[in-house]
Design a protein around this nucleic acid. Structure first.
Lengths: 252, 252
DNA sequence: CGCCTGGTTGAGAATCATCAACATCTGTGG
DNA sequence: CCACAGATGTTGATGATTCTCAACCAGGCG
């Protein structure tokens, strides 16, 4: 809160909801596009990126099956990606924080394989894919970077596969907390204290657990003095222990 | 066996182990590269693809952590991708059949995130990535296609996530059998009768189950008359029921 | 021939899901 | 501003699916 307020004062043009932001001065720039682009290339990128698009909590960015047109960089807020199983159950496939790219699953079939929904008020940069393709052809470092982003998504998904396949409820939840913590750190936010933007149901859904189990494990972590919980506000008191639990057998 | 033998007679130059094969006459062509490439472009692709590379059962194509240089198209045989968890356990992340591409996980960090190991005698086409990048820059349809391949890998991984997160042991195994059946069909092989190239351990590892459960479920399917099993030879007797089990709640 | 890996089958244990009751939070309208 | 309703979260008791441990079997290779 304090952080946001101070930013609004000191960096008027970098407010996440300000349309006049550009890739060149975006404070997330080095996260979502950490490439050594020439000035001219950044200008080209700026030209194709469509900003604005403020989403209210619960708004959909796109839905599973919609025609694929764009990928999106999250600028502020949090986006949840999910798909529906045969019987209409939800499977959360990822949470996307500022600086992360969402929508790349749509490329292969020309329609989105997931739905994307704002968990809180959020802003995104829309990047029309056909323009991105053109730019990638023209600017090899852009192509390379986009290949890398997609590859990253693959490895992230594979980590989740491993988590779901091998780890206990406690390990999964510890891993999620650590993951959020690390992603906060990347954005220069607190590594130990944050607000969970998603519901317990979403957490369970993402980690392949029921709400009840999520609730119980979080309570247990709380009692064990590993974390402090106040509804969605979380403080990680013992990062090392949590890491140990998350990586489980790593240690020895 | 019979199929292979007849192919060797009728199509000498299309034998999977024949180095003189080219992308233009590869009988998998339309699977691994289903693009409308111009003749000239196919020639260019041919120039960068390195064939040969016969792998014996157990041979590694690359190992987790190796410097990333190439992606590979499986030409014959089966490749298993896996990563090691903290404590050295294996997590199988995928099985790759002829016509499928493996290694794209290595792009993001310039080193492979998985190890790739031949489950039987296999042949692959090596595609040096920096050459592929150049070709992608020069030939937009090639770039597009490669984006699609990576996106495909993402959606495949997400399907596995859903499977691991929501489905019972029976559902997972039915889904795997159906998946293999479908991939066989794509290669014009039998949809109902095939040899499983992987061990029960690998199956369990892939599906997040123990060997024992895999064995029990397969036995049960056998007793129920859904399949016939003779060690690794599988015949799917009731494809529809299996599909129903795999999609589980889809039906109603 | 016998060892060793891989696979099958059984019995008991453990984790997590399910069912159910209750608490808390949110936001809406009086 | 309070009261209330619906959604969200917590906690408890019970049960099912799957894991673990263990014995045994089969087949391939030296």
């Amino acid at each position: 809160m304090v952080i946001l307020a101070s930013q609004e004062h000191s960096e008027k043009h970098v407010c996440p909801h300000n349309k006049e932001i550009s890739c060149g001065n975006c404070r997330l720039g080095s996260i979502c596009l950490p490439i050594a682009l020439e000035h001219d290339d950044i200008v080209k990128l700026d030209e194709i990126v469509q900003r604005g698009h403020p989403l209210q909590k619960g708004d959909h960015l796109y839905r599973e099956g919609d025609a694929f047109t764009s990928v999106y960089a999250v600028r502020s807020g949090t986006i949840k990606a999910y798909r529906l199983t045969g019987d209409g159950q939800e499977q959360v496939t990822g949470f996307y924080f500022p600086g992360e790219i969402i929508g790349m699953d749509g490329i292969s079939k020309d329609k989105y394989a997931n739905s994307a929904k704002a968990l809180e008020t959020s802003a995104v940069c829309e990047i029309p894919f056909h323009r991105l393709e053109e730019l990638s052809t023209a600017v090899p470092s852009m192509q390379r970077h986009f290949f890398q982003l997609m590859s990253q998504e693959i490895t992230t998904d594979q980590q989740l596969i491993t988590l779901l396949s091998k780890n206990s409820a406690e390990e999964r939840i510890a891993a999620l907390l650590i993951s959020i913590s690390a992603r906060n750190a990347r954005r220069k936010l607190s590594r130990t204290s944050f607000r969970l933007p998603m519901s317990r149901t979403d957490i369970g859904n993402f980690l392949g657990l029921t709400v009840e189990t999520v609730s119980r494990v979080i309570s247990r972590f709380n009692k064990q003095g590993l974390i402090t919980v106040e509804s969605k506000e979380i403080t990680l008191l013992d990062l090392d222990s949590l890491k140990a639990i998350a990586d489980s057998k790593t240690e020895f």
